[in-house]
Amino acid sequence: MEEIFEGFATAAVLIARFDSALFEIVELSLRVSLTAVLISAVIGLPLGAAIAVARFRGRNFLIVCVNALMGLPPVVVGLLVYLNLSNAGPFGWLQLLYTPTAMIIAQIVLVTPIIVALARQFVEDANADYDEELRSIGVRGAAKLITLIVEVRHSLLTVVLAAFGRAIAEVGAVIIVGGNINHITRVMTTAIALETSKGELALALALGVILMMIAFAVNAMASLIKKIGPKSYGR
């Protein structure tokens, strides 16, 4: 119990004195996870929407696969990305291993299935409601996809936030492909793992508290966008 109180106290101290090592780690965590989620959203939202609307052979099998990939263990993702980026692997020549870019790639692999699977479900549900109306107006193809995505944008924002939550909180993938190198690839979660293995439980907990605060801030910002969004759209 003592460590818990100490953890919160340490968190307060770290924030209050603008600890530069802490801010470096926080900045890298945000940079890596926001970039990864942004790229995943650009890939995953249209892809999910397309699967929702399209009818083709093997569609059900594809949906089952994508849904299953949501449960991909981060360590496995880390290993797969490691094996590809390793100098012994096919993309070793890119020299990306142990860089933030490698961590971004791993997180993209990790969260894109989440975005695709959830976006597919939301857009498919919306399509059931909108299909006749849109076909009656004469909206088809890409135009229909865009309309559906815009219509369910609030749900999709939640999807993206869920993906961000998974990305910023995972440790298994980034520690393998990033290597937890001080000042280069050390992020919140790998720092927490390191402090825990050093037995610095209070400091590890403090970093955890700060991670939660970051997640809270990002979600609060998203909720703000959501609130002012509909009033201004399509005037």
Binding site: D129, E132, T147, V150, E151, G234
Partner: peptide, 8 residues
């Protein structure tokens, strides 16, 4: 039951 878009 008409489906209207989420806009004005």
């Amino acid at each position: 039951s008409p489906v209207l878009l989420r806009r004005s």
